[in-house]
Structure formats: C-alpha cells, structure tokens
Amino acid sequence: LKTIAADERYLGAEIGAIMVLHTWGQTLTHHPHVHCIVPGGGLSAHGDRWIACRPGFFLPVRVLSRLYHRLFLEKLRAAYRADKLPFFGNLKHLSDHSAFDTVLTSLRRIEWLVYAKRPFAGPKQVLAYLARYTHRVAISNHRLLAVDNDGATFSWRDYRDGARMKSMTLAADEFIRRFLLHVLPDGFQRIRHYGFLANGHRRAKLMLIRRLLAATPPSIADQAPEQQPACAVADTSERPPCPCCGSRMVVIEILPGPRRGNLTPDTS
C-alpha cells in the first residue's frame, strides 16, 4: 500500500494505515488475516499539501495484488532458506528443497486477489468497524449455547450456506485447543499503525494534515452540552496536547489522594 501510493502514477503521497490482526473464523479455526483502515489520501512528498484520492477509487487492485504476490513469495522463500519454516504432519515432505520449490512455482502461476472495500459512510461507521476487531476475543458469551459432559456447543454462521446460523459441539479439550490458538504471545502487538499514523510521528503529522485541510482539532467545545464531562474545566489553553491525536487534553475526573487522617502512622 505504501509503495504503490507513493508512486506518482497512482497517488504520489504518503498514506497512513491502521491494521488489526484477526486470527479466527466462525468455528474458531486458525484463520489469520488483517483488517486495514486506510484514509483516502495522504501527504505530498514535501509535506506541503494533502493529496486526496479520486472519488470512488483509491489504488488499482491489480497492481496491489501483483506486488503483494511477489513480496509474499520472496519472504516465504527467504524464511525457508533461513530454516524458519518447520513442517509437520502432511506438510513434512516440504522440508525437501525440490518439493518446496515445486509448490512455490505453482503459487507463482496463481492470480492473487486484493479486495478494497468502498469508503465508510462516516466516522461513526469507522469506529464501529474498528470496535468489532479491536476489543473482541475469539468467541463471545452470547454464542455459547451449552456446556455439559458432551462438550461445548456454540453457534456459528455458515457463509457458504447463505450465512445461515448453525450450532457446533466440540469436545472440551478440542474447544479449549481452538480457543487457545488465538491467545497471542506476550508482548505481541495486534494493532499496528503505519505511514503518517505511525507512532513515532503521528502527532506531528496529524497536526500538519489538519492545518493543510484547515480542519479544527476536536475539542470539548465541539461536544453537545449533554456530552461534556460534568467536572471538565472550561479553560483548556494551558493543558498539554494529547500524545496520540494532538488535540487538547480533556479532564474527565480528578481522583483525590488518600486523606491524611486515614493513614496509619509508622511506629517502627
């Protein structure tokens, strides 16, 4: 995305992206994929103007698919040569170099696809989309139908059968195994930011973009009266900016410290 968007033939801009790793399917099987949200435009190479994409069109999906196809196979081969791809079970034969090269050759002949969805209807839809993938685990409580000696029964949506709702029962050990497939390693960052949204310079880049677009940063003054925190202080001029979005910080609540009368003196 960054490479093709930077090309003058397509957009000629530095874009941003928020990407969220999603590892499960409806039946808790291992289905790793990434959900991406990309603003429809970016900063010029000199950072002096905002370049918007054409209405209804962002980047050519055929060009995206061919570049992704090549990069994926190159990195797959590099990982294999560095002995970072162990194979087990039905795939153990791929440990042989000739067998692995045969599979790579067949993958090169396949046309890969990239699907870019149309823009969201507005900010609320963007937040609703993000919330579905950033604050959920592999299965929610409402999908659990029963837990008994036969195992765990849960509902799932079969998209190959017209998105019909069905139920599935798994033995307890298999249900736990599938669920634990989606517990990420300690310290693994499931949400990542790229381009002008990268953590290192997001604040400065967003302030620059707002200035180029003559957009006012969101503040407490923009909220409806019923949305304003009751204990927010009116004067925000001296508050530091938010390290994430660059807007003025808003005081939601001030927590009082411990009362001295409740402290037990140290007599040791």
Rank of each mutant, 00 (worst) to 15 (best):
Leu28Ala: 10
Phe175Thr: 12
Leu212Met: 06
Cys36Leu: 13
Ile220Ala: 07
Thr267Ala: 06
Gln227Cys: 11
Pro55Arg: 05
Tyr129Ile: 11
Asp148Trp: 02
Cys244Tyr: 00
Ile139Cys: 11
Ala5Gly: 07
Arg157Ala: 06
Arg192Lys: 12
Gly257Met: 03
His35Glu: 12
Leu1Glu: 10
Gln223Asn: 07
Thr216Pro: 04
Phe88His: 10
Leu255Asp: 09
Asp235Met: 04
Leu107Thr: 02
Arg77Cys: 07
Ala215Asp: 07
Gly89Thr: 05
Arg109Trp: 00
Ser140Asp: 15
Leu206Tyr: 01
Tyr194Asn: 08
Arg164Leu: 07
Leu145Ala: 13
Ala198Cys: 05
Phe57Gln: 04
Gly41Met: 04
Thr3Glu: 11
His22Asp: 14
Glu226Lys: 09
Pro240Ile: 02
Ile18Cys: 12
Tyr115Leu: 09
Asp96Gly: 00
Gly195Lys: 03
Gly16Arg: 01
Val251Gln: 13
Pro123Phe: 00
His33Gln: 04
Leu212Ser: 09
Val250Ser: 08
Gln228Tyr: 01
Leu144Phe: 04
Ala221Gly: 06
Ala172Met: 13
Phe87Asp: 06
Thr102Arg: 09
Ile220Cys: 09
Ala152Lys: 09
Pro256Glu: 14
Ala82Arg: 04
Leu94Ile: 03
Leu104Lys: 07
Pro225Asp: 10
Asp48Ile: 01
Cys53Phe: 01
Thr267Gln: 03
Ser65Ala: 15
Ala172Trp: 07
Gly257Tyr: 01
Tyr80Met: 02
Thr102Asn: 09
Arg66His: 11
Leu144Gly: 11
Pro241Arg: 02
Arg239Tyr: 02
Ala45Leu: 03
Ser237Gln: 09
Asp222Trp: 03
Ser247Gly: 13
Asp7Glu: 12
Arg66Ala: 10
Leu263Met: 14
Glu111Arg: 14
Ala172Thr: 14
Leu104Thr: 04
Pro119Trp: 00
Tyr80Thr: 05
Leu28Phe: 02
Leu91Ser: 10
Ala17Tyr: 00
Ala172Lys: 13
Leu107Lys: 00
Asn149Val: 03
Pro241Gln: 03
